[in-house]
Design a protein around this nucleic acid. Structure first.
Lengths: 331, 331
DNA sequence: GATATTTGTACAATCGATTGCAACATGGGC
DNA sequence: GCCCATGTTGCAATCGATTGTACAAATATC
C-alpha cells in the first residue's frame, strides 16, 4: 500500500480511503489511485484488514448431529446442505468454516475460537443442544439455526413444515388407493416425530386407523436399515404403502420390497422425503417430499446476514412440496 | 495477552513464548502462564497472529469443473470429496475455503486473493486448465491436484487408476458371462477416456470384439442421461452388460432398463463407478468400482501438508477396487 | 572476590491496514 | 485583506501478536 501511495503521490491513508470509497477523497484522486492499484495488481491484505477492524469474514457452520454415516461416507442431505451453504455464503462474500463438534456446553463454547472469531453462526440441527442454543441466543453473536420449532425456543430458526410434509406424503399414498400405510423413520429425531404427526393426521382425516404395527423405527443412515426393513417384511405384514422419513430409507425400502418379490408401486407404494436429486434415477423413480435444501440454505444465509447487519429478522417456516415421479413403461 | 502478562507478573513477550512452548522460557514460568491463561479463558487472536506471521491457516479448494448439476443439486461425487476434504483438513487444523471458479488464466490467478492469501491449494479436476496448472506448478505456493495423469504434467497429482478401474469393471461383467458389453460415459472428460481404454483392454484380453455401436456418450450429470439411454434401448440393441462411468449413470441405466422390461442383472448386467454409498440401496444393489474418495481426500491433504512443510512428495496413483453387491432374494 | 558464562525476561520494533484529528488549500463573503 | 466554511489530505496512533536484541540475575570459574 505504501508503494501505491508513493506512485500516486499521496499518503497511505488516502489510498486506504480511496479503495474503501470514502467520501473524504476527491473523485479524481480516488480514480487515479484505483487505477494505479489495479495496474500494479495490488490486492489488499485481508489478514491485516480483518485484524485492524477486529472482525472476520468467516461464518462457522456447526453440525449438531454427526453427518458421518460410517467410516465411508456422508448423508447426502447434509452434504447438499453444506454445498448449498457454501454457495450462498460465497455470494455474500463470506468464508465458511465447518465444525463437526456439536455444542454441548454453552459456557465452554463461548470461550472457543469459533465463538470468539466468527462473524456469525449457522447451526445445522438441534441435536441435544436445544437448551444450549437458547442460552446462546441472547448473545451478540449472530446465530441462525436450521431445525425444528421447539417449545420455548428463543433462537432464530429456519425450518420446513415437517408435519405438513408428513401429511402430504401420506395423503399422496392415500390418493393412490393405499389403505395400510406404514411409517418408516426414527422418531428420536424431532423432525421425524413431526412427520409422524402429519402421517397420523392424514390417516385420521381419511378415516383410516393408525396401526402401531405399521409404525417402524428405521434408523436414518446406517446399514442397519435394511435389516430392520427385511425383518418387518419377513413377517408378511398387510401393507400397501410406506411413508419414509428420508429418500435413503425409501431406497432401502424399495430394494427390500423387490427382494421380497413385491412390486413397487403396484403391490406396495413408497414415498420418500428430502427431494434429493437421485430420486429421479431410482427404479421406479421415487416420489418424494422436497425440502428444497438449496433454498433453505439461502434463507439461512439471508437471515444471518440480516442479523449481522443489525436487522430484525423473522423465523422462517418453509413449505415443502410433493415431487411426483412416475415410471414410463416402454415397449 | 497484556492482561495475562500482568497477572503472571511477566511481560507480553514471555507470555507469547510460553504459549508457543519456546525453550527460552523456564518450565515453571511456562506452566504458570498456561494455567493463568486457561483460567481466564484466554484464546489467542488468530487474526493478529496470522497477520504478524504473514500466513494463514486457510487452504483453498478450487473446483475446476462445475459441480452444479442444475439449479437444484450437486454431484454426490464432488460433494463427498468436499466433505472428506473438510474432515481431513480439520484434522490438520486447517481451514478450508472453496472456490467454484476454475483457473483459466494463471497470470490473473496469481493476483487473486486466493492465490496470495492461501496456505496452499487443492485443485479438484483439471478441466481445461492443464497448461495453467503446469504454469503454477513452479510457484512457491503448495498445490496438489486431483485429476488424471497427463502428458507433460509437472504439478503434484493424486489420482486413481482409471484405466485399471475400467478394466476391472468390464472384467467383472465378462466373468458374469456377458458378451455384448456397452460403455456408458462421456469421454470428453479425461478420466472417462481412460476408463474406456480399460474397457477396451478387457474386451481384447477376453477375445471379445469392440463394437462402436455399444460405445454410448452419456452425459455425466444432467437429466439428459435418461433420454440418451432410452433412445439407445429403444433401438433394441444386442446388449447384455453395461459399464457405466458413474454410479448416477448406472442408476439411470437400471431405471431405463427396467422401464424397458429388461431384468437387471439377468437380462442386462450393470456396473457403476465411484463407489458411492447409496449403491447398496439401489434395487438391485449395484456393483461398482470404488474410488475411496475419503481416502483420496486424506491423500490430497497429506500431500499438501508435506509440501507446506517443505518435504519432497510423490504423486499418488491409488488403486481402485471392485465392490460386488448382490441381491438377496427372499421368500 | 572479580570475571565469564549461562539462563530467563523485558524492551521495542514490526506486520498492513484504518481512522480521529490536525493541517492545509481554496474560494466566498464581508 | 482578513476570516471562515468547506473540502481534501497527511500524520500518527492503533489493533494483538511475534521476535531480535539487550539486559539482568544466577551460577560457574579462576
Amino acid at each position: 500500500m505504501q508503494h501505491i501511495a508513493d506512485l500516486a503521490g499521496v499518503s497511505r491513508a488516502t489510498v486506504s480511503r480511496a479503495l474503501n470509497d470514502s467520501s473524504l477523497v476527491n473523485e479524481q484522486t480516488k480514480n487515479k489511485i484505483k487505477l494505479i492499484a489495479q495496474e500494479h495488481n495490488y490486492v489488499i491484505n485481508e489478514a491485516a484488514r480483518n485484524f485492524r477492524l477486529n472482525q472476520s469474514q468467516t461464518v462457522t457452520v456447526v453440525m449438531m448431529t454427526d453427518p458421518l454415516v460410517n467410516q465411508q461416507s456422508f448423508d447426502p442431505f447434509f452434504m447438499e446442505m453444506i454445498a448449498s451453504l457454501l454457495e450462498a455464503l460465497a455470494k455474500s462474500e463470506l468464508d465458511m468454516l465447518v465444525s463437526q463438534e456439536p455444542i454441548t456446553d454453552a459456557a465452554a463454547f463461548r470461550n472457543s475460537r469459533i465463538y470468539r472469531q466468527s462473524l456469525g453462526l449457522i447451526v445445522i440441527g438441534q441435536g441435544q443442544g436445544h437448551e444450549q442454543l437458547n442460552e446462546l441466543a441472547s448473545d451478540k453473536l449472530p446465530m441462525v439455526v436450521w431445525g425444528v420449532p421447539t417449545h420455548g425456543q428463543t433462537y432464530h430458526l429456519v425450518s420446513t413444515d415437517d408435519k405438513q410434509g408428513g401429511k402430504q406424503a401420506t395423503q399422496h399414498l392415500i390418493n393412490k388407493g393405499c389403505k395400510n400405510i406404514a411409517f418408516f423413520g426414527d422418531k428420536a429425531s424431532a423432525d421425524s416425530e413431526l412427520r409422524y404427526q402429519g402421517y397420523c393426521a392424514a390417516l385420521n382425516e381419511a378415516g383410516l386407523a393408525i396401526n402401531a404395527e405399521l409404525d417402524i423405527t428405521v434408523p436414518f443412515v446406517t446399514d442397519k436399515a435394511k435389516n430392520v426393513i427385511n425383518a418387518f417384511l419377513d413377517a408378511k405384514p398387510k401393507v400397501d404403502g410406506i411413508v419414509c422419513c428420508s429418500d435413503l430409507i425409501a431406497m432401502s425400502a424399495m430394494s427390500c420390497l423387490q427382494e421380497h418379490s413385491l412390486k413397487v408401486p403396484s403391490d406396495v407404494a413408497v414415498i420418500g422425503y428430502d427431494g434429493l436429486s437421485f430420486t429421479e434415477r431410482t427404479s421406479p423413480p421415487l416420489s418424494t417430499i422436497n425440502q428444497d435444501i438449496r433454498q433453505c440454505a439461502y434463507k439461512l444465509v439471508d437471515c444471518l446476514v440480516g442479523l449481522i447487519n443489525g436487522k430484525q429478522v423473522e423465523n422462517t417456516l418453509a413449505d415443502v412440496q410433493l415431487i411426483e415421479r412416475k415410471s414410463t413403461q416402454r415397449n
